[in-house]
Amino acid sequence: MAAEVTHLRAELERLRVEMNRLGVLPAVELEQYQERLRREIAEQAAAAQEQKADLDRRLLELRQQVVVTEETALLQEAGVYQYRHPLSDAVAYQAALAGLQGQIKSMTKREGGAVLAATGWTVNGSAAEGRVMLRDFSKLMLRAYNAEADNLVRGLKPYKLDSAVERLGKVASTIAKLGKTMHIRISEDYHRLRVRELELTADYQAKVAEEKEREREEKARLREERRVQQEIERERARLDKERQHYANALAALQAKGDVDGAAQMQERLAQIDTAIEDVDYRAANVRAGYVYVISNMGAFGEKMVKIGMTEGVRSAV
């Protein structure tokens, strides 16, 4: 567009020079011609500016869409997954998938409604041959669609769900274009079932990963509890032994009549008793900790927080 404007300006200048040299046009007609060229140049420039503004707006929209998609993928890859069909656990997803796959299998049977085609098609004037051709081509198209759907299910990752659904939609559109002559196409009902299969599969995979993570955390928590419990038991045994030692020493000092020494020993025994109480408290509350809340838009996204609990209290003795 800018090149056309430049070309018109050059043409105007060339004509002005040429007409001045030859005196071909009267002055009035020359001015009119120049004015018409100026208007064309202005219109071309305005059109170019408007086209540029449209392109800039479109580019901004596309960049925003890319950012949203990238953020969603990063969040899902990091474990912040949004369930399409929230169920209680992986077993519930397995049951839902089994029921859905039963529906899919039922629709793929003859006259099941997975693929649609024209009626009344004839080949060489034969309606029977036309039905055979439609049936064969329909099977071929459905097989191609199912092969792609099965591959998408097998290789699916939860954070790639949207691209998998988009891919399957493109396959359905391609089949509709290839079968346009005989109106062969994948039915909307069947396509929705297979999209739901992708969604449930992604949900199932995310739930399994989530449950495995919880299991790992639980095992780590139990290991930590055992470690802390053993530490408490060792500390309690040490304190009991130390208390017995000081109790014997106190009895000996009292027998000697050493009041000051007995008082110091009594004070030490009180300190040990306090330490024993602390250890007993830790033993009774080995699973206690602090609840924390983390908000991080970069990691979790807007309006998302992580809630957790610290390890058991570790009081110094």
Score class of each variant (00 low, 15 high):
residue 250 L to Y: 02
residue 59 L to I: 12
residue 289 G to H: 08
residue 168 L to N: 06
residue 74 L to M: 12
residue 144 A to E: 10
residue 27 A to V: 12
residue 254 Q to V: 08
residue 292 Y to C: 01
residue 226 R to E: 15
residue 120 G to Q: 11
residue 37 L to W: 06
residue 66 V to Y: 13
residue 11 E to C: 14
residue 269 L to F: 00
residue 302 E to C: 14
residue 208 V to G: 05
residue 271 Q to T: 06
residue 304 M to V: 09
residue 9 R to F: 08
residue 262 A to P: 02
residue 249 A to N: 08
residue 292 Y to S: 01
residue 36 R to W: 13
residue 312 G to V: 00
residue 293 V to A: 12
residue 109 K to N: 12
residue 74 L to T: 11
residue 310 T to L: 06
residue 194 R to F: 03
residue 75 L to K: 12
residue 208 V to Y: 10
residue 311 E to F: 14
residue 216 R to W: 04
residue 140 L to A: 07
residue 31 E to K: 08
residue 61 E to L: 08
residue 223 R to G: 09
residue 197 E to I: 00
residue 82 Q to D: 04
residue 124 N to K: 07
residue 17 V to G: 11
residue 8 L to W: 15
residue 229 Q to S: 12
residue 311 E to P: 10
residue 313 V to E: 11
residue 88 S to Y: 13
residue 247 A to W: 15
residue 146 N to E: 07
residue 251 A to N: 10
residue 213 E to N: 13
residue 52 K to V: 14
residue 130 G to S: 05
residue 286 V to I: 08
residue 203 D to G: 04
residue 27 A to K: 11
residue 75 L to P: 14
residue 68 V to Y: 12
residue 217 E to H: 12
residue 68 V to K: 10
residue 308 G to V: 01
residue 189 D to H: 06
residue 71 E to A: 15
residue 89 D to G: 00
residue 28 V to Y: 12
residue 198 L to Y: 00
residue 50 E to F: 13
residue 228 V to H: 14
residue 161 L to V: 12
residue 205 Q to G: 04
residue 297 M to C: 13
residue 139 K to W: 03
residue 254 Q to Y: 05
residue 295 S to Y: 12
residue 199 E to R: 13
residue 51 Q to S: 13
residue 305 V to I: 07
residue 257 G to D: 02
residue 151 N to R: 07
residue 258 D to L: 01
residue 178 L to M: 04
residue 128 A to L: 06
residue 153 V to N: 02
residue 233 E to N: 11
residue 186 I to M: 01
residue 294 I to N: 06
residue 35 E to N: 08
residue 301 G to R: 01
residue 286 V to E: 10
residue 311 E to R: 14
residue 310 T to Q: 03
residue 282 R to D: 04
residue 264 Q to F: 02
residue 21 R to D: 11
residue 77 E to Q: 11
residue 69 T to D: 15
residue 245 H to F: 13
residue 147 A to P: 06
residue 101 Q to T: 05
residue 157 K to V: 00
residue 178 L to R: 02
residue 16 R to N: 14
residue 183 H to C: 01
residue 198 L to Q: 02
residue 219 K to M: 10
residue 243 R to N: 04
residue 293 V to C: 06
residue 308 G to Y: 03
residue 274 T to L: 10
residue 90 A to G: 15
residue 43 E to S: 07
residue 258 D to G: 02
residue 186 I to E: 00
residue 53 A to Q: 06
residue 305 V to Q: 11
residue 250 L to K: 02
residue 93 Y to M: 00
residue 309 M to V: 14
residue 199 E to V: 10
residue 239 L to Q: 09
residue 108 T to M: 14
residue 220 A to N: 13
residue 160 K to W: 07
residue 234 R to T: 10
residue 177 K to L: 05
residue 150 D to K: 01
residue 160 K to E: 13
residue 131 R to T: 14
residue 237 A to S: 09
residue 209 A to G: 03
residue 68 V to F: 15
residue 60 L to M: 10
residue 261 G to M: 00
residue 265 M to T: 09
residue 91 V to Q: 08
residue 133 M to V: 08
residue 311 E to S: 13
residue 247 A to G: 09
residue 188 E to W: 14
residue 253 L to A: 10
residue 99 G to V: 01
residue 5 V to R: 05
residue 252 A to G: 03
residue 216 R to C: 05
residue 109 K to W: 05
residue 147 A to L: 12
residue 165 V to H: 04
residue 30 L to W: 08
residue 86 P to D: 05
residue 141 M to D: 01
residue 104 I to W: 03
residue 281 Y to E: 13
residue 194 R to I: 02
residue 286 V to K: 09
residue 150 D to L: 02
residue 256 K to S: 08
